[in-house]
Amino acid sequence: MPKQIAAPAKKTTRRRGKAEVLSSKLAYNGKLFKVFKDQVREPGAEDAHLREVIRHNGSVVILAVDAKTGSRDPLIVMERQYRHAAGQFLLEVPAGKMEEGEKRLPAAKRELLEETGFRARKWTKLVRYFASPGFLGEWMQVFLAEELTAGQAAPEADENLEIVMMRLSDVLEMIHSGEILDGKTIVSVLFYARMLDENRKQKRKTV
């Protein structure tokens, strides 16, 4: 039987630039976000198309890690809350919407304290991503919060949160089994777990 040879990947031209916005109309102005109807001509396209886009001040995500009991399998600060849009309770890492004019790191510190009562001495940017770029203009910045100290939480009136401390290994197992469905939690925890694994490999190489 002849040996199968994989075809080389086709080279693609990366399209750059921004869309030409021909018109933009505010269709909805809500408490948390605005919806715009934009007529746009996107890069590489000849015709204009209608795009409905949700915009707001932006959000931050906090992966709060307590490694006092061991750095190989640290505790992760998780929240369990009911999400009406999803129609169920979800396990999530802390996150929240930025106030108008607020910077991302101060917003992350504020959200962590308000929702969980924790403060962190060490803050690191992990990764940023677009949650749903087909219609949502928001991108989310994940911060790693370490060296935690506990305090008193002060969630908003409509936030009914249960704080749960979980081992990283347990969170990973629940992600792989489909028990954790929240996107920001999956992105941040998997990124962090891979980072830990890469750091351990580098340490072994230098020994």
Rank of each mutant, 00 (worst) to 15 (best):
V187K: 13
F33K: 04
D182Q: 14
K18Y: 11
F89S: 11
L161S: 02
L50K: 09
K97A: 06
S188W: 04
A107S: 15
R167L: 11
N57L: 03
T185R: 06
E146M: 11
P43D: 06
D47Y: 10
K3R: 12
E100L: 15
M140F: 03
Y192A: 07
N199W: 07
E46G: 11
R104V: 06
F130M: 10
E147M: 08
K109F: 00
P155M: 05
L90C: 13
G134L: 00
I76F: 09
L91H: 12
E42F: 10
S24Q: 09
G96Q: 04
G151S: 06
G58A: 08
L105C: 08
K25N: 07
A85Q: 03
V53F: 06
S59D: 06
R83C: 10
L168S: 11
K18A: 06
E92Y: 01
A86V: 03
E138Y: 03
I76E: 04
E173H: 15
E100T: 08
S188K: 09
L144K: 08
E156R: 12
E173F: 08
G44E: 11
L181G: 10
V40Y: 03
V142G: 00
R204T: 05
R41D: 01
A9T: 14
D73A: 14
G134E: 13
I175P: 04
Q141T: 12
V93N: 07
G44N: 07
E179M: 15
V65C: 02
A108K: 10
E99I: 01
I62V: 15
K18D: 06
A7T: 09
I62C: 00
M165H: 15
T13L: 10
M140H: 08
T116R: 09
K68I: 07
G101C: 00
E111N: 09
K125T: 12
V93K: 08
T149N: 07
L144F: 03
Y82W: 11
F135H: 12
R15N: 13
A19Y: 03
I62P: 01
M195Y: 03
A48P: 12
L181Y: 05
K31L: 14
V164F: 05
G58V: 04
S169F: 12
D38W: 00
I54A: 15
K31W: 02
G117S: 05
G44P: 10
A145R: 14
I62T: 15
E99C: 04
I76G: 03
P94D: 15
R41F: 01
N57A: 07
Q141G: 00
R167Y: 05
K184L: 10
E111W: 13
E162K: 08
R110K: 09
G30W: 03
K205E: 12
K10I: 07
